[in-house]
Simulated assay, not measured.
Amino acid sequence: MQTGRPLTKRGRVFVRVAAVFVLLVSLGGGLGLAVEGIEGRAALRDGPVGSLTPTDRTCGKQSCSWTGTFTSTDGSVTARDVELRDAVDVRRGDPAPARIDEVRLAEDAGAAYTADYGWHGPVVKGSVLALVGLAIATGMVLRGRRPRTAAPGHA
């Protein structure tokens, strides 16, 4: 007596490929989020302090963020096309502020962070996404294994 309908060889290969895909997407997304949070924490701790002069906005599905030129307080560091990451929601129609003070530049100069940036959220979300993806992929592989036949007399 079998405990379940066995998958064909093609079905097992499909399940394994799908599990690898789920694992790669979840680990990539999870690590990306976690790295953003860690980068923000490092910038808030050690990044040069200055101001961001918005020149444009970058919009996603739900909100926008300011992009502009960062200039350090002492004038020694200048970076263009820096994205501001903070806790303020920016809408498409919001007017650009003249300058945003007290921001810290990340090491790669691609982003600047305000003091209200919550770096814990991206790290936790990224970790959870990676773990959930790992669990789903493991479950898919285990579920796709050949079912064992039950011993006679055991249902």
Rank of each mutant, 00 (worst) to 15 (best):
L105R: 00
D86E: 14
Q2M: 15
F14M: 04
R85H: 10
V141P: 04
L142W: 11
V103G: 02
G68K: 02
I38F: 12
P152F: 08
G40W: 07
S72I: 09
T149Y: 05
T8D: 08
L7N: 14
A112H: 00
V88F: 10
D108M: 03
C59P: 05
D116L: 10
D81Q: 09
D116E: 14
G28L: 04
L52Y: 04
T71P: 04
M140N: 04
A19W: 07
L24P: 02
D101R: 11
S72H: 05
P6W: 07
A34V: 01
G68L: 00
D81F: 06
V141D: 04
G4C: 11
I136Y: 04
G144P: 05
H154Q: 12
A150M: 08
R146Q: 14
G153H: 10
A115G: 08
L131A: 15
I136F: 09
R145S: 15
M140E: 03
A87Y: 05
R5P: 10
A135Q: 00
R41E: 15
G4R: 12
A96R: 10
Y113R: 00
I136L: 12
P6N: 06
S72R: 01
G121P: 03
I38L: 15
G121N: 06
S72L: 00
R92Q: 14
S65P: 02
R145V: 11
G11A: 12
P147G: 00
D46F: 03
G139P: 03
P122I: 07
R92I: 11
S127I: 08
L105E: 00
L31V: 11
L142N: 06
L31C: 14
T8C: 11
R91M: 12
L52R: 04
R10Y: 11
G144C: 03
V82I: 05
E107P: 07
A155D: 15
L44I: 07
S26C: 15
L129W: 10
Q2S: 15
G118Q: 09
E83W: 13
P122N: 10
D74L: 13
P122Y: 08
T69P: 05
T149V: 13
D116R: 07
A87G: 14
V132H: 05
Y113G: 01
P54C: 03
V141C: 00
T149P: 06
Q2N: 14
V103H: 02
E36M: 10
A34C: 08
R41S: 11
V25E: 05
V25A: 09
D56R: 02
P122A: 10
R91S: 15
G60E: 03
H154W: 14
R41Q: 14
F21Y: 05
T69Q: 07
T69L: 02
A42S: 13
V49R: 09
T55W: 05
G144Y: 00
L134K: 03
A137M: 02
G153I: 09
T114K: 03
L7K: 14
G60H: 06
A155K: 06
A79C: 03
P147Q: 00
D94V: 00
G50T: 04
H120S: 12
V141E: 01
A18W: 08
Q2P: 15
T138H: 04
T67E: 07
T3P: 06
S76E: 11
V88N: 03
K9N: 05
A18G: 08
R148D: 12
V13N: 10
L129H: 01
D89V: 15
D108C: 07
K9I: 13
H154S: 09
